[in-house]
């Protein structure tokens, strides 16, 4: 059964009289305990998607239309109090930079206890016990001492552990992790990733990982969705997607991995750059960077089609599949 279902989500930024679309017809679903990843370059709309789910898009962004269902219950249009109930308790978020995520003037303890107390009616003492227990569960040594410390007294990796402890306090169903390891150094990255993975598996928590690091995605996510200029362009099981990318953009992303180039060779790039919200190309937004672009790519938006076990929106793939089918029919 699907835990979270997003359907035709449209998010736009209002600039004066202009409406700049940031997310267009984004649809996906997430099962209980499933781990999915959103990948794409900066500006693809991955983070906006994460914030949209908990209705925390920064102004002047807003949800234009669409539906977000949590356990079959629509959560778009909930009032502030109802949304507050969902945030932290049902859907929790981890941010990119642990150095910036904790409030510098409040102790770790204050920031943990307030989260529990705002959702449940328990005493400070009980809340503190839960907090200490969660700090232990993310392998923080001497949690009693950390409880009374301020964020600046902790290292980056330690802070990210505290943040993970903070989001586990209320046993959420979904964790949205927005580049959770990008700001950490490599050895700590692996530790935090491992921790996150274990926690999700142990507590049957669903994870939405937002990342541009395909290496990390391949280790964590069961399913991957590729985003470009506010749209999902390809979706499929992570392994298949990485081994057999369909969409030219996905191919480009994988090609751009440093390990794809030979030593001494120039690194591969996708030529051009992600369009900004204001000058999104018509048709398939990727057409001006696509090596296979055709005439109709310039003014038509390709539909989603099944290709193998992936879903992809690309005219080139569509034609290829068409040809294959024709060839097969010809053979018959």
């Amino acid at each position: 059964m699907s835990l979270l279902t997003v359907k035709n989500l449209n998010v736009a930024f209002r600039l004066g009289k202009q409406e700049l679309p940031a997310l267009m017809d984004v649809s996906f679903s997430l099962d209980r305990g499933e781990r999915i990843a959103f990948v794409g370059e900066s500006g693809a709309g991955k983070s906006i998607l994460g914030f949209s789910i908990v209705n925390l898009i920064s102004k002047p962004g807003y949800i234009q239309s669409g539906s977000i269902k949590l356990n079959k219950k629509e959560i778009i249009g909930l009032n502030r109090r109802q949304m507050q109930e969902i945030r932290g308790k049902r859907i929790a978020m981890i941010f990119q930079d642990p150095m910036m995520t904790l409030n510098p003037v409040l102790t770790i303890g204050q920031q943990l206890v307030e989260a529990i107390k705002s959702h449940t009616n328990i005493t400070y003492r009980d809340a503190k016990n839960i907090a200490i227990e969660k700090l232990l569960s993310v392998q923080i040594a001497s949690p009693e001492r950390r409880f009374n410390q301020y964020p600046h007294e902790l290292s980056g990796g330690m802070r990210q552990r505290v943040i993970i402890a903070a989001i586990l306090l209320l046993n959420p169903d979904v964790i949205i992790a927005d580049e959770p390891t990008t700001a950490l150094d490599v050895t700590i990255q692996a530790e935090i990733l491992q921790l996150l993975l274990e926690i999700c598996k142990k507590n049957d928590v669903a994870l939405i990982l937002i990342s541009h690091d395909l290496g990390i995605v391949s280790k964590v996510a069961e399913r991957t969705l590729v985003m470009y200029a506010g749209r999902i362009v390809e979706e499929g099981p992570t392994l298949e997607l990485i081994n057999d990318p369909q969409h030219p953009y996905t191919q480009g992303l994988l090609n751009a991995l440093p390990q794809m180039a030979l030593p001494g060779q120039r690194l591969n790039q996708i030529k051009g750059s992600m369009p900004s919200l204001a000058d999104r190309p018509s048709g398939c937004a990727f057409h001006n960077r696509c090596p296979y672009a055709m005439e109709k790519c310039k003014d038509q938006q390709p539909e989603f089609i099944h290709s193998g076990i992936s879903t992809v929106s690309c005219f080139m793939i569509e034609e290829m599949l068409e040809e294959e089918r024709n060839a097969q029919e010809g053979l018959l």
């Binding site: 945030r87 929790a92 930079d97 995520t101 409030n103 307030e114 989260a115």
Partner: peptide, 27 residues
């Protein structure tokens, strides 16, 4: 109010009064 720690506070489901007067005002 634009900083990450305020966003994180929102995502924890805290009340707006607590976010404005404890988290933001102190900073």
């Amino acid at each position: 109010l634009e900083s990450d720690y305020i966003r994180f506070a929102w995502s924890k489901g805290l009340s707006s009064a607590r976010i404005y007067f404890i988290h933001a005002l102190k900073n």
